[in-house]
């Protein structure tokens, strides 16, 4: 099995989850209603837990200790999509990002259940089950607010238009895309992208929202090869602030 290709895949998944997990956690104490405060906090915990599982597999493959890998890299060493690093914005912005990201995350793990890399296939089946709660949560609120008032609909629509290019950047192809597919490690970004569109389009069409035509949108790429927005490094600095005070502390 092509280990480099496998690691590249695991890094981008883990980094997406870690960074979005931290963004989600910024809603703790600030949610527009208590239930949403709890929901985003719980999803943060899930995301960071999922990333930990991915970093543990990377450790098996010869990478360093998960904490070191998660906390002691610079922004340009992260493989996450730019979608997940953007600041949380207003609630509607975080909700639309959650909707777009989690449906792709669910499908990615759905596909990874069949991975030829056994360890990944096993944990993917479990993560997929957990993500059902995330997609269910996202759908419930997008349906509710996407059919509510002119204000809620126009807010969601603006965020959907703004985030679609970033969401399409989730499917940036790996330099090892061919090997990943031919060795049955993962079905590939193109398949994921088309399954994702098939899944979200009917949900959006049940609301007053309009899904931007993906063919008319220029995807924001680069995250997978370490090109990031100005927002990632400050986030990493913040999430590692305590650890950097005393990196060798025993907890």
């Amino acid at each position: 099995m092509n280990k480099t290709a496998l690691k590249e895949l695991l890094f981008k998944i883990a980094d997406d989850q870690l960074i979005l997990g931290h963004r989600n956690s910024e809603w703790t104490g600030l949610g527009p209603i208590l239930e949403e405060d709890i929901a985003f906090s719980s999803m943060a915990q899930d995301k960071i837990g999922h990333s930990y599982a991915m970093y543990q597999i990377l450790e098996e493959l010869g990478e360093g200790d998960p904490d070191q890998v998660a906390f002691f890299r610079k922004a340009e060493e992260f493989h996450n999509s730019q979608l997940v690093e953007l600041p949380i914005g207003e609630y509607s912005f975080s909700l639309i990002r959650h909707f777009l990201y989690d449906h792709s995350d669910f499908l990615r793990f759905d596909m990874l259940r069949n991975s030829s890399y056994e360890l990944l296939a096993q944990v993917s089946s479990k993560i997929r089950s957990e993500l059902k709660y995330h997609t269910m949560h996202a759908r419930t609120w997008v349906k509710k607010l996407g059919t509510a008032t002119d204000d809620s609909i126009s807010r969601l629509q603006n965020d959907l238009d703004a985030l679609m290019p970033y969401a399409l950047g989730l499917f940036e192809k790996s330099p090892y895309e061919e090997e990943i597919i031919s060795e049955n490690i993962f079905g590939g970004e193109e398949e994921l992208r088309s399954r994702w569109l098939e899944l979200i389009a009917p949900i959006i069409s049940k609301t007053e929202l309009v899904l931007p035509d993906p063919e008319g949108v220029e995807p924001v790429m680069g995250g997978r090869i370490g090109k990031h927005t100005e927002y990632l490094q400050p986030l990493i600095d913040e999430m590692t602030e305590v650890m950097r005070i005393d990196p060798d502390a025993e907890w």
Binding site: E35, I38, S42, M43
Partner: peptide, 13 residues
């Protein structure tokens, strides 16, 4: 159902 997410990951409200 009030919330599929509760005080811990395994509980709903």
């Amino acid at each position: 159902l009030q919330n599929p997410f509760g005080p811990t990951l395994c509980r709903s409200i």
